[in-house]
Nucleic acid binder design. Structure first.
Lengths: 131, 131
DNA sequence: GTTCGTGCAAACGGTTTGCAACAAT
DNA sequence: ATTGTTGCAAACCGTTTGCACGAAC
């Protein structure tokens, strides 16, 4: 929750710009692209440059504070939830939602011949059921 | 296998350029990006334009001859295997490999509340085991 | 003579890079 | 004085678009 402490504890020198970027990226539940982070941060703090946003995002990824995912075509998407989980992508809206790890069970990834699987996730596509 | 017949049977008017693109995309087991298809086709047929390659790829996707995947960050990747299967991405090389559908089993995608899953796949990352 | 396909070049969106100015220590 | 951080602008890569030429029926 405390962004300042979070940055410090991960060896990232806290600056106002970095706090703004980290705050936005970590609060956001929308799996924003880097450009979306840039635009969002800009609203609160119009002076930050693109370079700083991209630098900071790379730093956050490197230090394990956010994850970089290939879920949308053509853009890098950032996920603030770093614990393992799955993803659901809505066909209509393109919205990416997190699916709890326990909601789906996967077996067989550890017995593929010749392959050491370090991590995996299920990527689902479909639509939200009208209620 | 017969590209000409394949195009015809999918209602695509066969032209030399389209045959080259389709041939390359379908033969390729490497999950090439559009740009890589363009470069590859160019070697055999240096006159084709980018626009034609991209047009043709879209056509092939639309007609279900290849699939478009979001597996690499920042690029669209094309997969000639249209039957359902999973993917493994090598940490070292970035190479994307197909994993047979039956090699992995997934349960629970049909009982997510509020969600109709149309399709899913497991995306695995790791490394090839040294033999 | 319309339709459809092509090639070229320019535009585009998202990301990256080079560099000069500027803190911070 | 060195190191690290920032902002700006330009470059970059992959993809898309506009348009005029050309082939096909």
């Amino acid at each position: 929750m405390d962004i300042l402490g979070l940055l410090r504890s991960h060896g990232i020198q806290p600056t106002p710009q970095r706090m703004a970027v980290a705050g936005f990226a970590i609060d956001s539940r929308n799996h924003p692209s880097a450009e979306e982070v840039y635009l969002g941060v800009r609203e609160a703090c119009p002076t930050v440059s693109r370079a700083t946003v991209y630098n900071t995002l790379h730093l956050l990824v490197e230090r394990g504070l956010v994850r970089q995912l290939a879920l949308r075509e053509g853009v890098c998407v950032y996920d603030s939830q770093t614990a393992p989980h799955h993803h659901f992508i809505d066909d209509d809206t393109g919205r990416i939602e997190d699916v709890p790890w326990d909601a789906v069970s996967v077996t067989g990834t550890d017995t593929l011949q010749g392959i050491d699987v370090r991590e995996f996730q299920v990527v689902m596509r479909g639509r939200r059921r009208p209620r």
